[in-house]
Structures are given as C-alpha cells and as structure tokens.
Design a binder for these strands. Structure first.
Length: 467
DNA sequence: GGAACTCGCCAC
DNA sequence: AAACGTGGCGAGTTCC
C-alpha cells in the first residue's frame, strides 16, 4: 500500500489550509432545484417503465424468464451474462476484470446487435441518472442546498475526493445526461456560476518533472494530439475545426496520447483508435475507415465492417516506439530512472513536498507525482481564493467546489470581472511565483452561467488579460 | 440482516 | 516481460 506523508512544513500547511478552505466551501454549498429533481425523476421512471414493457415482449426476455422464473431481474448482470453466454452460447467479446464471467458492459452488449440489449442499455443509462444523481441530490440537500464533501485524506496520490454527493463525477460528456443532471444545480439567487479550469495541468507537471524539451515545446506551442492523429491515421494534414476530422484528433488524444501517458500500450490503443475512426470523416467526404483501408492498414468487408487490423496494430506499435524512443525520449529516460530510484530507495518525493513510500507498481510510481502535483496547484489557488473571499477582500462571491483541476465560484454579478481577473492572476501568476519550481507557463480557461441559470447552461467566458 | 465483494459507469 | 492512473456509488450477490 502506498503511503504518503507531508515531508515539508509547506506540504503540511497546504493540507491544513486546504481542509479549512474546503470546509467553508462545504458550508456555503450549492443550490439545488428539488422540484425539478422530483419532476425529472418521475419523468424518467415513466420512460424506464415504457422501455421495460417493450423489453418484456422480446425473445431474450422470454428465454430469461424461462430460466429464472419469478427471480428474473433485468438489472442483474450476472443473470444476463448466464443467459447470453451459457444458455444462448454466444461467445463473450471479453471477460469481466475478475475473469468470473462474460462481460455485459456497454461495449459488449452493443456489438451483439440484439435490439433487446439496446433497450437494457437505455434502461441502464436512465436509471443511472435517476438513482445516482437526481435521487442523491434530493437525499443530500438541506433546505434546497447541497453540501458535497471534499476529502483530502483519502486518495493515495494526495489528490482530493468528493462524496455525499460526489460533486466530481456529475455527467459532462453525454449531452443528454449532462443536461438532466446539471439542470438541477445553481449558484445562489441572482448569482453566476463561474468555473475556471487549468488546461493540461497534468502534462505541464510532466514537463516540469521530466524537463523533456520536446514535450515542453508541444505543450506550450504545439498540438501533440493532432500530431499523433496525423501519424496514427496516416493523414497528410488534419483540420481540427472540421467536424469530421476533429474526431480523428479526439482519437489521437483519447485513444492514444492519454492512455500512453497513463502507462498503457499500443495493443489496447488500437480498438479505441478504430472507435474514433468509425465516427470520423475526412474533409473530402471519405469515411475514416475507408481511408485506413486505402492506406492498407485495415481490411473491410462489403458492409464496411473491419475484418483485419494486423497492419494497423503493427503501425501503432511503430508509432508508439517513435513516441517514447524518439519524440519524448527524455521523458522516457526520466521514467526509467524515476522507477529505478524508487526501487532502490523505496519512496518518491513530490515537488510539492510529499513523500510517497510503500509498495507501488511502475505506473503508480510514475503517475503519482503528476497527478498529485497537478491537484496541489489547484489546491493552492483554491486556498488563496478562499482567503481573498473571506478575509482580505471580503467578497460576496464564494468558492463552492472543485474537480481536480477546476474550481467553481458562486459569483456576484458586480464582482464578476474582479473575481475572474483575480482567479486568473492567482492561478497563473501568483502560484508560479510562490512555487518557483514551476518553470512552464500555466493557463486557465473559464465557463460562466448567466444569472439564475443552471450549471447545464455554462458557456465559454473570455477571461480578462492579466499579464 | 449486515459486511464484503463484483460489476458497471460517472468524473478528471 | 508486461500492459490505464485516481476516485464514489448503486444494484446484485455471497458470506457469515
């Protein structure tokens, strides 16, 4: 088990002040529209009932009933797994993590092309929103205000966690789920919800630890996700503003660069890269899969389904080799020496003053300093903003939460410009002055909700220049 | 009847 | 040779 302790007085102070600042944010809380939650819950319940009824008439459910009788439970993945992979003798696409049974996650079910399974997935999604989020909002609120906890004593990397309810995993990517959940949450009456987040702060921490000049250049001036997409998909160029081609950049980012940084390898990247290719189109209208086929990387059948990926696999292996041994070779060397130093000493030290000891895997050992330090940047800024809000400048505006690299501030309209400018200054100027080991520029972006509009309504907000 | 586990899924 | 980091949480299941 990885153990962390404050190695320096500064590190201790950061935790101490952080807990107090989070305590004030917890007390301040987040306004929740309870009536909306109840309405939406009822609406979802009706929708779930409708789909459940349709499901009852399917062949799959008739078979399921035959086996399980009155014990039939459509939310039991164990039962579903047995029906699909034992009774119907379908070959599972993959097993669960523990290897106990064939997997029944979204990917495994959707590729079987059985309509009943799509209905099960639909039910899963709606139930998730209703029971994990809307229900929790109603359960946890006091007089129309939520008080999510922000913990500093749990994550092994000295990040934070959140609970009751978890403010850090409210849907964001799935537009539908995002709208349903975030429509429930508001800043105070007459206030804006201002959200400011550090851009690519984990990668910037990697720049600082590794001092890889190419990584620094790409982070500050370049676009590594685009570069890698061009290599991976064998493109001549990529326009990230083109709606079809930007999916390929997303593929480079989420299907390769991030997994590689977390310690994954090319074999796991290939299926993800293909997933993004499936929904991408080149500027001239060529579907990305057809393009890959033209390049000889994959083979397609008459229906356009991928039948062979051997060449693509080999290609991604080569791209990975180049990524670590040429492009970011300094980063690569750092990883090796960092790991061997840990193996010799039994601990690692973060630049923020924490020492981590105990048993760590290689990936843990390498990721911990980036994740931990990145969060500590946000934490330092959060503490400073809390201090300005409550002590030095006595704002009406108040910080109300954070999501690892993002801070939410319940902001009075008349203070908006001052708060935005101050946050920009604290995060990007004061912090690197206080921690002089930060030798790459830090950047933030902001979103804003109009007064009395929910979190779901957030829009890009141009921050004032402070430099 | 509760603790501990598995599985799936939400966030960064 | 090995192979994605950190969390919270709901539902189902198994164990005691």
């Amino acid at each position: 088990m990885l153990q962390t302790k404050a190695l320096t007085k500064d590190a201790y102070q950061l935790m101490h002040d952080g807990i107090l600042a989070f305590g004030r944010a917890e007390r301040q809380g987040i306004r929740v529209d309870v009536e909306y939650c109840e309405r939406k819950k009822a609406h979802l319940t009706r929708k779930i009932e409708r789909v459940t009824k349709q499901l009852q008439n399917t062949k799959l459910l008739k078979l399921w009933n035959k086996i399980y009788g009155v014990k039939t439970n459509i939310s039991s993945n164990h039962q579903l797994s047995r029906v699909l992979y034992k009774t119907m003798k379908i070959k599972p696409f993959k097993s669960t993590a523990s290897g106990n049974q064939g997997a029944t996650d979204e990917e495994s079910l959707s590729m079987l092309g059985i309509p009943a399974l799509d209905q099960i997935l639909e039910i899963r999604k709606l139930t998730k929103v209703r029971d994990t989020y809307l229900d929790a909002f109603v359960r946890e609120q006091v007089d129309g205000t939520l008080h999510p906890f922000f913990n500093l004593h749990i994550p092994r990397t000295f990040r934070s966690s959140s609970s009751n309810p978890n403010f850090q995993n409210i849907p964001a990517r799935d537009k539908q789920a995002m709208m349903m959940c975030r429509q429930a949450l508001y800043a105070r009456e007459g206030h804006h919800w201002l959200a400011v987040d550090y851009s690519g702060v984990e990668v910037r921490m990697a720049c600082i630890y590794t001092q890889d000049q190419k990584l620094i250049y790409d982070t500050v001036h370049g676009d590594m996700h685009l570069d890698m997409a061009v290599e991976l998909y064998k493109l001549d160029s990529l326009d990230k503003n083109h709606s079809g081609e930007k999916n390929l950049r997303q593929g480079g980012k989420n299907g390769f660069v991030f997994p590689e940084f977390y310690g994954d390898y090319y074999g796991n990247c290939v299926p993800n890269l293909l997933k993004w290719a499936r929904i991408a189109t080149l500027k001239d209208g060529t579907p990305a899969l057809v393009h890959l086929s033209d390049k000889g990387l994959v083979k397609l059948d008459k229906k356009g389904k991928v039948t062979n990926t051997d060449k693509f696999l080999k290609h991604v292996e080569k791209v990975e080799d180049d990524f670590w041994n040429v492009r970011y070779r300094t980063y690569s060397k750092w990883k090796k020496s960092w790991w061997s130093k840990y193996q010799k000493r039994g601990y690692i030290d973060m630049l923020t003053g924490f020492r981590c000891s105990g048993v760590m895997t290689k990936n843990e050992c390498i990721n911990t300093p980036f994740q931990g330090s990145a969060f500590h940047c946000l934490l330092w800024a959060f503490i400073r903003i809390d201090e300005l809000a409550y002590e030095e400048e006595k704002w009406d505006s108040k910080p109300i939460g954070q999501i690892h690299d993002e801070i939410s501030i319940d902001t009075h309209p008349e203070e908006l410009e001052h708060v935005a400018e101050t946050v920009q200054r604290v995060t990007c100027i004061e912090l690197p002055e206080a921690w002089n080991w930060i030798d790459v520029p830090l950047e933030v972006e902001a979103d804003l909700c109009p007064v009395n509009q929910p979190w779901a309504s957030k829009q890009f907000y141009e921050l004032p220049e402070v430099c």
